[in-house]
Structures are given as structure tokens and as C-alpha cells.
Amino acid sequence: MPMTIDSSEVLKRIEDAPLLSSSASRLLQITADPEHSLGEVADIVKTDAALTARVLRVVNSAAFGLISTISSIDRAISYLGERLVVGIAIDICASQLFDKPLTGYEAQRGDLWRHDLRVAIASREIARLAPQDMAVDLAFTGGILHDIGKSILSEFLTGTAQSVLETIEKGEAQDYLEAERAMLGIDHAMVGYELARKWQLPEPLQQVIRFHHKPSEADEEHRSLVYAVHLGDIIAMMGGGGTGSDTLQYHMDSAYTDYLDISVEQLTMTLLHVEEEFSKMEASLLDGKDGGT
């Protein structure tokens, strides 16, 4: 291991992280409540001019290929789905985190956001296969946020990728998470969790971020949601959408079968769907970002 630094230095960096906007924060709270309505979501979007403009740009982007322009927020939200609106709201206020090149993981600018979007789509698809009722859009939001800790931890890992991989290959660390802890005293899941607490994210999202690599340790109440994101993360990495050197360097918690029913055929269909949905959403979100039409 090349260095050991105190986790308090990492934690200090969390204090400097951007805050969520009040509209993003309220959207996250409301959509985590199973009783919420689409009208409540629209009401929040309408009070935020930047969010309104961006939602309309995305819905009218070429990727969706609408024949006539949508100018009403209610129609835009029902067309895009609240999950994408929440994703846009998060991205507006935290883009400096999502767009960071994760140098510590030898990933490029945009890799984290693309990985998160893939995980979001995959987690929601997996959540739809759950035998019990699950908030599928919350699985999407959990996917967007699950790796947020990497944006802060990355710079402390600069130059370590090769030695971390050797450590894992030799069996000195069982996965990337353990190697991060050995070097920095804290791993990206825990850093993300600290940020989630600072942002006062709803409890199920805090659990997703903290336990996405070890879902069996999540509270029973949220465990199936955490398993959905755990598998969504693996599906994204299998599809080639990782965040650099840590791609596939984790273990699968095989007890997912206690919470989610998934056959080989369903998984194959999911992989296909994620690839198609990702291409469409990526194009529309990028269009929206550039200010294109």
C-alpha cells in the first residue's frame, strides 16, 4: 500500500461539498414517500426556473423525437417520469461532483454520471421484478446517488489504481472497498453515506449509498431496495459501464435470491433494455445540458 492517510482529511472534504438545492432536496423527500402524487412533484419543479427550463429542454430533445413541442411542465413530467426529473434536479446542483474525472480510479470526465445513469436504469428494472411491492423510482434515484462518495474519495486515491489491483489479486484485500479502507481509513460507500447525512437524504437512500456493496447489512425494511441497486451496479459493470479501475472488483451478495426473483431470461432481457434505455436517456440529458433543442 503506497500511503495511509487519516480519514478525517477525507471527511473535511465532505464539508466543502456542494449543498443540494432546496428543490432537489424537496423532490427527494417527496418522492421517497410512497403516498406522494405527481402534482406535488410538478409544484416543486414550477417554483424552480432553472429546473423548469432544463426539464423542458430534455423532453423536447431530439432523442425523444416528439412531433410537437411540449411546453407544459405537467405534461413534461408525465412524459419523462418523475425519476428523470429528480435525476435532472440532482445533476443541476451537484454536477461538479458527477462530472469530476475520477482520477483516483483512472476514469474519464463523465464516466461517473454515465455509470450512475446505467445503474439507475438497471436498478429500477430489477426492482420491478421484486415479488413484494417496491418503490421502483426510488431504486432509480438510489442508482443515481449510490457512488457519490467516489467523487470525494477519488483525489485521495490518485496514482494508487495499479497497486490496489495487485493487492486484490494477491488476496491482501478482498475487494476495492477494503483496499480503500486500508489506505484511507474509509471507503467510498461510507464517504457517500456521510454526504447523504449532510444532505439529509431520506433514510432509504442513505441505506442504498452506505450498503450497496453489502446489502445484507442494510436495515431489513430497506434491504430489498438496497439489493436492487447492488444488482443494478453489477449489471452496469457487466455492460462495460464502470467507473475505471474498480470495475467488477467487488463481490456479489448471492443472498439476493431471498429478496428478488430473477431468472436468466429476465436478466438477459434486462441487459438489453438497459443498453437501449441508457442510449436514449444519455442523449436526451446531454442535449438538455448543452442547451440544445
Partner: peptide, 14 residues
């Protein structure tokens, strides 16, 4: 054809 080991064999797409 990489993969994460799944003892249930479902995820062995690689």
C-alpha cells in the same frame, strides 16, 4: 467475457 462470480449462476453471462 468478464464476470462477478454468482453462486446462483444467473449472472454468469460472461
Amino acid at each position: 467475457g468478464a464476470q462477478i462470480m454468482d453462486p446462483n449462476n444467473t449472472f454468469n453471462i460472461g
